[in-house]
Design a protein around this nucleic acid. Structure first.
Lengths: 420, 420
DNA sequence: GATTTTGTCTGTTGAACCAACAAACTAAGT
DNA sequence: ACTTAGTTTGTTGGTTCAACAGACAAAATC
């Protein structure tokens, strides 16, 4: 991770002075403890290459800022004086993520340790509501989350909003959200107004991007620290894609990257929401699955049901071994692999993560998907890419939003807490 | 650009001390002068935010290392004492790039200012030669380039080899190069042996990746410094893709990214070299163009002709307004746009660069290509992506190889020159 | 000569480093 | 049980290095 850099990794480096040097090393120690767990000062010094005295000084400052705390004595080493464990102090600082999606609003607050302080999701038929009314309700949820953080005496690192559309990250303006039926709208400005011009940072980002970030954090715990490249596919009505490349979220030149749903891979068939035919999401979106697996008058297609109830219905049938359901799932899995192979050939990720409804139905999708990828990827052994289900479900984007707010604290710990 | 980082941007930051602080600021000043041109110390201080005294000290060290030199007096400002211009000293340090391709070997040496010291290309029918024999000949070219650098009394920053295949960058091992007919081979080790275990760094990288890097440097001069995201498409027998995202070369988890030639976008037609049908390169590769534009017994298809002679033939006919040629070019342009739109939707680059034969025939390909992209990209206005021809032609990869060696000097100027 | 700008010089500050050391513990010997 | 040697931890005092701040001589214009 950069030290003195701004947000753009490609930019010319920035001149550094003693302050940035200190900031860097504070960040190094803090992230070291986050990633590798509680450990003594001596061990931190050994592992980071910093001097023992320096580590002591850095830890003291981080403790004063409420980011680290001293824990128990370390009895793991046999000989010598036992060290005092230093661990992440989750209680002090929290980040909040909130999400607008087609049929729900959601919010999450995470503390510095990544533990969930509050998580809430309410069904809302956003497409049939005025944007203003939706934002009113979202602001209510954000206020609840902020209140929960304040009730814990926590400082708020920031709030990040996830939107399923094209977002200009720098300004927080939404350009287009076809699934919501929204056009241009300055979401950041509207929300700042509704939240009473708050002092904490408020950002807006693409839903799939934030979900990818959450999956990245989730999977580094499982797949290991050497995992740096990931593609997340979230299945919903459409298909969203988020890319982490070299440990950084890939946003593209104008923040419009990851629009994978409209790759023209399918044979000309159903017309897509974008007006064309042959789009990937016409064969792997939830609608496509329902059309393949059920008849028009099937009870799972009842408009009164929400996504999760429909998925529960499909899952039940698949578990019972219903032939038509299984065949439809295999079909979707194969198409998922055909598009997935394109992504793997272009991006060569370490893992391809299934999110949203793909994660729920993962057990049935995974096998045909992996087969299709193995057949189509040019690199030996599928480029070493594994297919993995995310456990975060529909909470991935809000988690990612909370995390990206917290990440700023890890990059620059001096943002938080009293000055020395 | 990072400061204290290793090669992997996602890795945990590295502890910094006074030495890395100095290294960073040396790098900042050096890159500042490279990117913004000659200027006085006072101006560098003003623009970078460093102190005047600090800049003096940094410049002195960079001059001592042979990376900067003092130029003329700056008479641009009206009032006051004129400054002494400080400029890049190209003469001291050079980087070398070399390339193995299907029908030629090439080498280039660039100095620190980016000026060409030597550039050479020799036709070689690599596919019908033993790999060992090819490497022997390549080693000869590299020795020529090194000799040219030494003749100028220049220090060699490094040598980078470009190969049209899947390369493991860390080890320098080639995994697969279908167009050469090569399998697994440790190119780095073989070349080090042939060059007599040289002391300078020797790396191996994918040809399209290096070409993308060269195009990035080329276009930042034209498109401006705010350009950070680029996709390069090199047309040859196949199609290669290179991606620069956020100013960094995107390599993927195992270095296998950018394999765009086999996206299944075309209708089932000719069988591709990979054994499947419908691959992108079956409709946009040079062979596809020749099949569309000419009959079997057409003189441009004469096996005695090389690529450039064939292209010259096609160009001549297009300029003369030959209907069949123009129609074939329009066709290829449209298919180029269909695949290109996928890349733009996924990666949202600032520019899509045409390299290799696409650049040569760019005038005829560009219009249908842009039309196809505009129609298929979801983001407004094609995601702000422009289509641009590269002027580097078939020298892009060697230039990129030389540049990536030189880049190391800009990141850490203390690698070069006498210690203070 | 007054003014403005450049670049150097002197001294200060801040942060990391180094070496020494007291504290806290284990293990072995008496 | 008590002592002693050996280990490891974390702090302290002093050193080093690099950036900074301000003063100032030099070199130009007006």
């Amino acid at each position: 991770m950069t030290l003195t850099d701004g947000r753009r990794p490609g930019s010319r480096g920035v001149a550094a002075d003693h302050v940035s040097l200190r900031r860097n090393n504070l960040s190094v120690v803090l992230r070291h403890v986050r990633d590798l767990g509680p450990r003594s000062r001596a061990r931190i010094a050994e592992e980071t290459g910093l001097n023992k005295a320096t580590v002591s000084s850095l830890v003291a400052e981080l403790v004063e800022r409420g980011l680290l705390r001293e824990g128990l004595a370390d009895s793991s080493r046999a000989l010598g004086r036992p060290g005092q464990l230093v661990e992440l102090d989750g209680t002090g600082v929290c980040g909040v993520g909130a999400e607008i999606n087609v049929d729900y609003l959601a919010v999450a607050a995470l503390d510095l340790a990544g533990d969930v302080v509050l998580e809430k999701r309410v069904p809302v038929d956003v497409a049939h509501l005025e944007p203003g009314a939706t934002l009113d309700r979202l602001a209510g949820l954000v206020r609840e989350a902020v209140a929960a953080v304040e009730a814990r005496n926590g400082q708020l690192a920031g709030v990040t909003l996830a939107v399923p559309g094209l977002v200009q990250v720098e300004t927080g303006e939404l350009k287009l959200a076809p699934n919501l039926g929204w056009g241009e709208l300055s979401v950041a400005q509207e929300m700042r107004m509704r939240l009473g011009e708050p002092t904490y940072p408020l950002h807006v980002d693409n839903e799939a991007n934030l979900a990818a970030l959450a999956a990245y954090a989730e999977l580094r715990g499982i797949e290991g620290e050497s995992m740096h490249d990931l593609v997340l596919l979230t299945g919903a009505v459409g298909v969203g894609g988020g890319v982490v490349a070299g440990g950084h979220l890939m946003r593209g030149g104008h923040g419009y990257s990851g629009e994978v749903g409209h790759m023209p891979v399918a044979p000309p068939g159903r017309t897509c929401g974008c007006g064309r035919t042959g789009c990937w999401e016409t064969v792997v979106g939830l609608t496509a699955l329902l059309h393949k697996a059920t008849d028009r008058d099937d009870p799972v297609r009842d408009p009164a049901l929400d996504v999760e109830q429909r998925l529960a219905g499909i899952t039940r049938r698949a578990e019972a071994g219903d032939a038509r359901t299984l065949s439809a799932l295999k079909d979707v899995g194969t198409w998922l692999g055909i598009g997935g192979a394109i992504l793997v050939n272009i991006l060569n990720p370490d893992v391809l993560v299934l999110g949203g409804y793909f994660a729920v139905l993962g057990p049935w999708l995974k096998e045909p998907l992996e087969k299709a990828i193995q057949e189509r990827v040019i690199a030996p052994d599928g480029g070493g890419c594994r297919v993995v289900r995310s456990e975060l479900g529909f909470a991935a984007a809000v988690r990612g939003g909370a995390q990206i707010s917290l990440d700023q604290v890890f990059v620059d710990p001096t943002r938080i807490g009293a000055a020395t």
